[in-house]
Design a binder for these strands. Structure first.
Lengths: 133, 133
DNA sequence: CCGTTGCTACGAAGGTTATCGTTGACACCG
DNA sequence: CGGTGTCAACGATAACCTTCGTAGCAACGG
């Protein structure tokens, strides 16, 4: 493992960085070639490598040697990045209203009954689970 | 009004751009000086002007003369920007699961009973309102 | 042993973001 | 009229994102 953070991962990810983090979160880890294959369009090998090096400088990923190649692993959890991103959106776009955020979300996509049910139970759990810890 | 779009506002906003759009969405419109006053830290007048000009180039805002100054108005609705941002997050960070997004949201903040209730009714409305249009 | 292949490292190019300094226009005050 | 304050326009700057080309290294096949 290497990598001294430059900005500690405080800020959100850029588009390309997010593409790459998304792959690592989904797969758990990846070599440069694996990440590259998992990306949509065709991106140069060195481009992916560079992005991973930048992400490492920021402390978002780490790497360990695997044979001749490096295997990169995310050091920032997706939930943590998601929380930061959601906070930003709810504050700047929805003026602090989570209700508006949710309304926009469900208006934007057609959720199945199943999905709505599960979302409702997320709210139930939040309500019940409060006041304990 | 002026402003031919350069990228049509397809992409999301950067941090600073979002700060400024947030003010315009909240207030409805604003001159350079008004926007500047509404921003948190002290930002230079010309900086705010420049950002508004960039946003105008992108088609996100327009302006009309008001006395000697320009009054800027948002051309992109906050719900539209919010929808785009949420889609990006749910896809890249939560792998398409709105349920995970919602779980992260409610874990991150302590919502009141009132807020939870309103969010639940947003889901109810979504369920009932489906299949018609 | 030598060429090929699969890697990482380095650094540069082009575009964007974010910050202003400076200039010039215009109007108001005294 | 002449100074002062408010405003937009322009250009400069520094940092950062994103893309690679090129080079160098190490292992493997023949």
């Amino acid at each position: 493992m290497t990598g001294k953070p430059r900005d500690g991962g405080r800020k959100g990810f850029t588009d390309r960085e997010l593409d790459i983090m998304s792959v690592l979160w989904r797969e758990g880890s990846g070599t440069v070639a694996e990440v590259r294959d998992a990306l949509d369009g065709d991106v140069g090998y060195t481009t992916v490598l560079k992005m991973l090096q930048i992400l490492e400088e920021k402390g978002a990923v780490g790497h360990e040697r695997e044979g001749r190649a490096y295997r990169y692993v995310p050091l920032v959890a997706s939930a943590s990045a998601g929380g930061r991103a959601l906070r930003r959106i709810v504050n700047k776009i929805f003026h602090g209203s989570a209700e508006m955020l949710l309304a926009t979300l469900v208006e934007d996509r057609d959720f199945s009954d199943e999905e709505i049910k599960r979302m409702r139970s997320v709210l139930d759990r939040a309500e019940r689970g409060r006041g304990e810890k």
